[in-house]
Design a protein around this nucleic acid. Structure first.
Lengths: 144, 144
DNA sequence: TCTTGAAGCTATAGCAGCTAGAGACATTAA
DNA sequence: TTAATGTCTCTAGCTGCTATAGCTTCAAGA
């Protein structure tokens, strides 16, 4: 049995975050020791690893909740899990494209700014003038 | 003079967000009409466009606050603005790398899942088992 | 065995960056 | 003139944590 601290170390999820996941029902309520401290078994560790990994891959806690409920009853077609993964993939591809444009823009900004006064510096200008933008159609989602 | 609605349309920043920016001091308090409605001039529009664009490029509101204060007194060397842009560039490059790894992983997941039962489906498995991961060192920051 | 320091507990509040709702007043087009 | 739309303030909510305070429990060394 693991204490919350050991679980934290072995999954890379911070202690308050583990308690938070329990609080919002993503992890079941942990067993307690005589002194009221949480105790975790291997199953809990695996579930948390699952959550951690899914978070790293960009899944929202809600999507993870869905995936977990799928994996809790594994005798169905996996099309639902697949759909979630596909949706994530589309989202990720879009983020990638926007970030690539963003990178080009920032590189241009940095190159053009080499020690002049701000009045001559295009960092500010580029940020103020949308028409100078390399990417024509950055949408609102680009904000994330 | 523009109403808040027109300003919203012409910048692509939502009305409540504009009010929020005023509230946190990113935009100065707007003039008011006789009927107490906010009115904006060209300068306000430009400032908001600046903010919008910077947000799209991934700058935090704090970084934007700094940039704005720089652009408000333009008679200094622009090294500070440059430093902010450079820091953003590094951050963006790191995000790009992580997203690329993530994309590969999701593609693998989607390919392997073609209508089987969940018990045979690797979407869940891949998410649970870190050792199956293509990226060996996804850090905690990958969560964003 | 005692002690001390780390680790755990609960509860509450805070963070960024918005977004949504309620209920009242202002403006505009037909 | 009337109806629809826009705007106002205020408050509360959202996601996904993170931090603080003040307490208890545990483990290891002297």
């Amino acid at each position: 049995m693991l204490t919350i601290g050991k679980l934290s170390v072995s999954t890379g999820v911070k202690v308050p975050t583990i308690r938070y996941y329990e609080q919002i029902g993503l992890l079941p309520e942990a067993e307690r020791s005589a002194g009221n401290q949480r105790l975790y078994d291997r199953k809990a560790l695996e579930r948390l690893a699952f959550i951690r990994h899914a978070r790293e891959l960009g899944f929202s806690l809600e999507a993870i909740r869905d995936l977990l409920s799928l994996s809790d009853n594994p005798d169905q077609p996996c099309s639902a899990a697949d759909a979630i993964a596909r949706a994530q993939l589309i989202e990720v591809e879009s983020r990638l494209a926007r970030l690539a444009a963003l990178k080009a823009e920032l590189e241009r900004m940095v190159v053009q700014c080499d020690g002049n006064r701000i009045a001559d510096c295009r960092v500010i200008e580029v940020l103020g003038d949308h028409s100078l933008c390399i990417t024509d159609h950055v949408t609102e989602d680009a904000i994330h």
